Computed example of a mutant assay.
Amino acid sequence: LRGLVLSQRDWLIADGARARLKAQWAKLFESFDAVICPIMPIPAFPHDHSADQEQRRIEIDGVDHVYTDQLAWPGIATLPGLPATAIPLGLADGLPVGVQIVGPWLEDRTPLKLAELIEREFGGFVPPPMFDD
Rank of each mutant, 00 (worst) to 15 (best):
L1G: 10
L1S: 14
G3S: 01
L4G: 15
L6T: 09
Q8K: 02
R18L: 15
W25G: 01
K27N: 08
S31H: 13
D33W: 02
V35R: 05
P41F: 11
F45V: 14
H47M: 12
D48N: 15
A51Y: 05
A51H: 09
A51I: 10
E54C: 03
Q55A: 13
Q55S: 15
I58W: 02
I58A: 06
D61C: 02
G62L: 13
H65F: 12
D69A: 13
D69L: 11
D69H: 15
Q70I: 09
W73G: 02
I76L: 15
I76G: 00
A77Y: 00
P80N: 14
G81T: 07
G81W: 11
T85H: 14
T85V: 15
A86H: 03
A86F: 01
P88T: 13
L91P: 00
L95H: 02
L95Q: 08
L95R: 11
V97S: 05
I101P: 06
V102F: 13
V102H: 07
P104Q: 12
E107T: 00
D108E: 14
L112K: 07
K113H: 10
A115W: 03
E116K: 13
I118W: 05
E121C: 05
E121N: 07
F122W: 08
G123P: 01
G124I: 11
G124C: 08
F125Q: 02
M130P: 00
D133G: 14
